[in-house]
Design a protein around this nucleic acid. Structure first.
Lengths: 334, 334
DNA sequence: AAAATTTACTAAAACGTTTTCGTAAATATT
DNA sequence: AATATTTACGAAAACGTTTTAGTAAATTTT
């Protein structure tokens, strides 16, 4: 069922029917009624490709994320989808699996008009940002969220990573920690680095030991990460507090403490960025910096639609920050 | 940059260029080379809408799920995406948020050719399946996964819910439980009902009390669910084992036991369907029936592509079952 | 050497919309 | 009543591809 057939049924021209369907003022009320009725009767639906081809609009946005089996990204996508649904847009999902090359190829794939905008969270392996710059130059709307590239002037939505890094560290200090380690996930990632800066500055401010040995550079390989953490905690003068920059590192700490028979929080206190539903159910419950993942998703989506619908005058903020919240639980009890 | 411009640059006709790009035998090797080179130089990319319009193929599949911030669906989507990437297909995501009405409207939305196939996991509120039947009649390929409708003859991919229900119950019995409760999530859901059947049959086979009072019908409202569970465990002759049909109900049990000061597994043993990363980190660690979520996603995707690429002869299995595995942990220790 | 076939292309239609432009008829203005 | 404007529609172009049908020229077959 297409416009041609519908028009024939109605004894009208294709253009009249098309106009009637989008409520054009050129069409009389009675004709509109007839068209709507017939369209419903015959279950007419606009062909999206013909429409997109003609209008040069896809009514679709892309979400490019490193992984989806990570509650943060799942929640962010949830937020994005909620806005897309309001705007009657469609959402395409692409996973990079932390592979910079795949990120580039997806980015190139999306430059053919398939989407009206792209929302992306960078892979931890991405060190070159020219593919992002390219989108910018092609004037394809893009918003980076959470894992952003600092020095590229595209709109970015993040949480207050530096501040949260500071307050997480302060919280450990208040809980009595004297020697706090920081678990970094990747030197490529803005989130990791900003959280680290917050940590370092807080350590300095409080005149605590600011040793490079206390900053552990972890990777995507959890076996290796576990070994790194184990070695850290096996040392004679091991730290009495750990600040994990991402969820999975905090969980690895729990595993290692189990294996080394270290008591949390008596022997060592742990805090980590996390959106884990079960943080409160762990023993001890895990003190977290909980990121506003859903809101970050929503904010990013609202931004991308601002860019898509942009009229000359509107101002798009380059940075949007949605605050995280520190949720104190058992793992940092005095 | 489109075919027209590219053809002009090459002093060729549009059709020659189009054919060269898809390696047609009608075009000489030298011309093909020239076309490929120029296309690369000018960064020509096929317009997907023009192509889809002409070919009546979208190169896109839709995934319709009740929620995404649920590790099971996240993993399933991961599996689906891996196949889609291999096939160079695009993946659209739609969330129904357990709303039957939204499920119907999404289904209708997708009947205009936007996708070549649909993979769906039903909402817990869905009781009428005519929208699925409609897809079937429109010959729009559809595969149901995990949460399927039993009596509709479309391909379905699930785990061995009945068998797993049985073995979960047997496991509790072997661990010494004499009075086992089952937490159902929705009477509309095949997964819940099949797991329940496995439970009931196992209970009967072992001559244990088969009381309706031991089957708790939970809902989407976690406050209410918690109350139901609390009431169950407050009873004088409370059960000594609980089989939670879905992850979140198992977690609620942990919360309730905490609040009621019941010791797991001494006072009560718990087993639940779950894909939780942190199952092993809970105290005690949670015994789970772990579903092959990623594989279910992959299988469903492979099936949808079989349907999409269907040649008259190929046979599509109506039921595909991927086995779950029982992972014994602390919550069911003798 | 004539006829048949193959090669390598071009022209044009088709996919189904949307939108611009044109125009009779109806209505309003002077 | 003559002119201007509005109403309500239709024709046709355009979006960018893919594919069918057609055709000179080159090659092969008889």
């Amino acid at each position: 069922m297409n416009l041609k057939q519908l028009a024939k049924e109605l004894n009208l021209s294709i253009s009249a029917v098309s106009k009637a369907l989008r409520d054009s003022h050129e069409i009389s009320a009675s004709t509109k009624l007839a068209v709507l009725a017939k369209a419903k009767e015959l279950n007419y639906q606009v062909n999206p490709f013909a429409s997109s081809l003609r209008k040069q609009k896809s009514k679709t946005i892309a979400v490019v994320v490193p992984e989806i089996d990570n509650i943060f990204f799942a929640l962010a996508i949830n937020g994005i989808e909620s806005v897309a649904q309001e705007k009657e847009y469609h959402v395409l999902i692409y996973l990079t699996h932390e592979d910079a090359q795949k990120e580039v190829s997806v980015t190139q794939l999306l430059q053919n008009g398939r989407v009206d905008g792209i929302m992306m969270s960078l892979s931890s392996q991405t060190t070159d940002f020219s593919h992002i710059q390219q989108l910018k130059e092609k004037e394809l709307p893009i918003v980076l969220f959470d894992r952003v590239a600092e020095h590229i002037n595209v709109p970015k939505v993040t949480t207050d990573d530096y501040d949260s890094g500071e307050s997480a560290t302060e919280h450990l200090i208040e809980a009595g920690c004297k020697k706090i380690a920081f678990l970094s996930i990747s030197n490529n990632l803005s989130i990791s680095n900003k959280r680290k800066s917050g940590y370092i500055d807080s350590i300095k401010k409080n005149n605590l030991p600011n040793s490079k040995n206390l900053i552990i550079e972890c990777s995507q390989d959890d076996e290796k990460n576990k070994l790194l953490i184990k070695n850290l905690l096996k040392k004679k003068n091991r730290p009495d507090g750990i600040f994990a920059s991402v969820e999975k590192l905090a969980l690895l700490c729990y595993e290692v403490c189990d294996e080394l028979n270290l008591n949390i929080p008596a022997d060592i206190k742990i805090i980590g960025f996390s959106n884990l539903h079960t943080a409160a159910l762990l023993k001890p419950s895990l003190t977290t910096i909980t990121q506003p993942a859903y809101e970050i998703g929503r904010e990013s989506a609202l931004l991308i639609f601002k860019l898509i619908e942009k009229r000359g005058n509107s101002i798009i903020p380059e940075k949007t920050v949605v605050a995280s919240s520190l949720i104190k639980r058992g793992s940092t009890k005095k």
